[in-house]
């Protein structure tokens, strides 16, 4: 079991990443709290020794995404999650950003994960495939399709590569 100091350090370092992934998966506050508890408890009890910070971050991303998916499937989760919550947040953004925000959140879940990991976390397709445990060709396909969908929604004014 990990120490309290180690755990607090991990919370400080990765809680923003966990929070963003919760946002990508449309969690409400109660669900986000559940995800935080699940992910960091798993970390405390985990005996995995990380090779470096990147390895540790990838572990947090994978565990958070899996926890979000489990919660989405769960019968007991709060059913107050709504796309409207996310869309409301876009109201304060400048118009160009608002369009992108709304286009990203209108993508199906499996595309949203890869788009977020690719554009925000700067992961390549092979890295995403390792994190999500999917075939690299599947990730290439998902990325290509999500770029096409974003282009259809936003037009050619943006650089997608």
């Amino acid at each position: 079991m990990r120490s309290e100091q180690e755990t607090i350090r991990a919370i400080e370092r990765y809680s923003d990443t966990v929070q963003r992934l919760c946002m990508v998966h449309l969690k409400n506050d109660a669900d986000t709290e559940d995800i935080f508890q699940t992910v960091f408890l798993k970390y405390v009890l985990s005996s995995v020794s990380f090779e470096n910070d990147e390895h540790e971050k990838a572990w947090f991303i994978r565990v958070t995404i899996n926890a979000c998916k489990d919660l989405l499937k769960s019968f007991f989760r709060s059913h107050t999650v709504s796309l409207d919550n996310v869309m409301e947040q876009s109201a304060e953004l400048p118009p160009d950003y608002r369009d992108v925000w709304e286009a990203v959140f209108s993508l199906p879940q499996k595309y949203r994960d890869v788009v977020y990991l690719h554009y925000f976390e700067d992961y390549t397709a092979p890295q995403i495939s390792r994190i999500l445990g999917k075939n690299v060709n599947t990730i290439y396909t998902l990325l290509t399709r999500s770029k096409q969908m974003l282009k259809e929604k936003l037009g050619g004014a943006y650089e997608y590569e």
């Binding site: 923003d16 929070q19 935080f36 950003y97 925000w101 554009y119 925000f120 650089e159 997608y160």
Partner: peptide
């Protein structure tokens, strides 16, 4: 505009609240 830059601007401000971190720390200790 580059999509990577836009994503950084969109997601960077999303931060975990201190209250949530403290709740998690208390939960783990318990």
């Amino acid at each position: 505009m580059n999509m990577n830059d836009i994503f950084k601007k969109l997601f960077k401000p999303i931060r975990a609240k201190e209250e949530l971190k403290n709740q998690t720390i208390a939960f783990l200790a318990q």
